[in-house]
Every structure is written in structure tokens, then in C-alpha cells.
Simulated scan of single mutants.
Amino acid sequence: MKGLLYYFSGTGNTKWVADILKKYFRNNKIDLELLNIEKVEEIKLNQFDFLIIGSPVYAEMEPKIVDNFLNKLPKCIRNLKTIIYATQGGKSSSAPAIMAKKLKNKGYNIFIEECIKMPNNCYFY
């Protein structure tokens, strides 16, 4: 089995989670390729059995760069199993559900939407 994880990580939290997922899948004999959305030139999903998309949360939403990426993803004709995760300072956000809805409309089979609480990077003096 082989999966692909696209991520955007403004502060490093989302990349950290991507690295943990890669180790977990490797320990279970599943290959997981990590690709930074900022460096993606061409989207190729045909050779993968599943897809994961990771994003930070900016004011309850995915960042514009992630939204633009989701819009570029092709329509899915083979019901590709997909996981969405978002990292944020709060316990939950609507970002994974919003991202999932966009992908469901393109035919992706979303079977996990997860919020992962991370250290907050916004401080008040």
C-alpha cells in the first residue's frame, strides 16, 4: 500500500504531525510520501492508494494556500480514500469539515476529519 500526504505548515506543527504519521505508517509497512503544498508543481494521484491532507488553521479556516491547492486537485473518479487533518491552538475548528466538503464535492472518499490540538503560536501581552 502507498499513500500521499500533502501538507502546508506555517510554523512547523503540521509538518511535525506529517512526520509522525509517516513513521506510524512505515512501522505498519505502508509507504507514505510527504509533499509540501508550497513545492508541488504537478498533482499525480494515480499511483497512490490513499491521500492525506494536512493544514494549519487560521481563524477557523484553512489558509488561502491550502484552499487554492484544494481547488487545483482534480475530480476523483476512483473514490480515493482521504484523510483530512488540521493543527490548531484550540481543541477543534471547522477547517477539516470545510476542506472535506470541498473534496467530497470532487468525489473523494473522506473517512477521517481530525483536529489536532497543538501549542498556540498567538500570544497577547
Rank of each mutant, 00 (worst) to 15 (best):
T87A: 00
G90W: 02
I84C: 09
N46G: 13
L34S: 05
L5Y: 03
M1G: 09
I98Y: 13
D31Q: 08
T11D: 11
Y125G: 12
E60N: 15
K72L: 05
F111N: 13
S92L: 07
R78M: 07
K39P: 06
V66P: 05
N105E: 12
G3M: 09
L73H: 06
Y123C: 09
E38A: 11
L5G: 04
S9N: 09
L35Y: 01
D19W: 04
K75Y: 07
Y6P: 01
F50A: 07
G3K: 02
S9A: 12
I52H: 08
F25G: 05
N46W: 08
D49K: 15
N13H: 14
N13V: 02
A97E: 15
Y7T: 02
F48C: 01
Y6I: 01
I112K: 15
I53D: 10
V57F: 08
C122Y: 12
V57N: 10
K39Q: 07
S93D: 05
S93E: 08
P63G: 05
K2D: 02
R26A: 15
K44T: 04
L70P: 03
F25C: 09
I84F: 04
N36P: 01
N46F: 05
E42I: 06
G3P: 10
E38S: 12
G107V: 01
L73A: 04
C122P: 00
I52G: 06
N27H: 05
K106M: 00
R78Q: 12
